[in-house]
């Protein structure tokens, strides 16, 4: 367990930074965004068409 200031130092350690924030996950995040954009387009179409 980490306390106070040492917590912020923890954010710089490999134990934290090596957990891929983007890296391999870019594709998954991008897929979510693409799904969302498709949903937005579909909803816009429904709003305009009906």
């Amino acid at each position: 367990m980490l306390k106070n200031d040492s917590f912020m130092d923890f954010l710089k350690t490999p134990e934290y930074t090596e957990a891929p924030v983007l890296g391999n996950w870019k594709a998954f995040y991008l897929t979510s965004i693409i799904f969302f954009v498709v949903e937005l387009l579909l909803f816009s179409y429904l709003t305009i068409a009906y």
Partner: peptide
């Protein structure tokens, strides 16, 4: 979806580790 991406990228590794 945006909230889920932000939490996945920033918060999840911190809580878990």
């Amino acid at each position: 979806p945006i909230a889920m991406i932000i939490l996945s990228a920033v918060v999840v590794p911190l809580y878990f580790k």
